[in-house]
Amino acid sequence: MSEQLAEERASAAPTPGHVGGRAVMLIPHRTPDTEETMPPPDCQRILAAVRQATGPVMARRVGDTLGIDVSVRSKLEPLRGKLVRLVDRGRLPKLPDGRFTTRL
């Protein structure tokens, strides 16, 4: 039984993939039994920044919390993309007004 559980956890672990010839880290979809440590470290930092906020936050506020220069659009857009990927994977909800919040 423990071998089967270990195999299931290994299959859910982040695996590197290739996009355009570059190695990228694939973010697994969230399942009820997925541990919070499963996403890559940068995604874990983003999730922690959203959790620290007192309410729903915009990407700019998350960038401020992470120490990213949000006045430069080219630095803010990759963060926004990661936030959207976390929403797509079921790790963060996104409100209709574009703000991100923790799982309700």
Rank of each mutant, 00 (worst) to 15 (best):
V84D: 03
V62S: 10
L5M: 14
P28H: 08
F100N: 09
R30H: 11
R85E: 02
L76P: 03
D69N: 08
D33K: 05
L95N: 14
L47R: 01
E8Q: 01
E77L: 00
P39G: 14
V24G: 12
R91M: 02
E8C: 02
R91F: 02
E35T: 15
I46D: 00
S71F: 11
L104Y: 12
P39N: 13
V24Q: 06
Q4H: 10
V70N: 11
E3A: 09
E7T: 09
M38W: 07
L26R: 00
M58K: 15
D33G: 08
R85C: 04
L92P: 01
E3P: 08
G20C: 11
P16T: 13
A6S: 05
Q44I: 09
A12C: 09
D97H: 10
G81Y: 01
P28G: 07
V62D: 14
K82P: 01
D97T: 04
L66Y: 11
R103K: 15
T15P: 01
D69H: 05
K82T: 02
D88L: 12
D97C: 10
D42W: 13
G81Q: 01
L47Y: 03
A13F: 04
L95Y: 15
I68E: 12
V87P: 00
K75W: 10
R99S: 07
T65P: 09
R30W: 03
P78W: 13
V57M: 06
P78N: 04
L86F: 11
A59E: 13
T102Q: 02
A48R: 07
A53R: 05
T15M: 13
T34M: 03
V50W: 01
D33Q: 13
P40F: 15
T37M: 08
M1R: 10
A49G: 15
H29Y: 08
P32E: 04
A53F: 06
E7S: 08
R9C: 05
M1V: 08
V50M: 12
P28R: 02
E7G: 05
G21S: 14
R85H: 02
E3K: 03
V19L: 11
R45P: 02
R103N: 06
A59D: 04
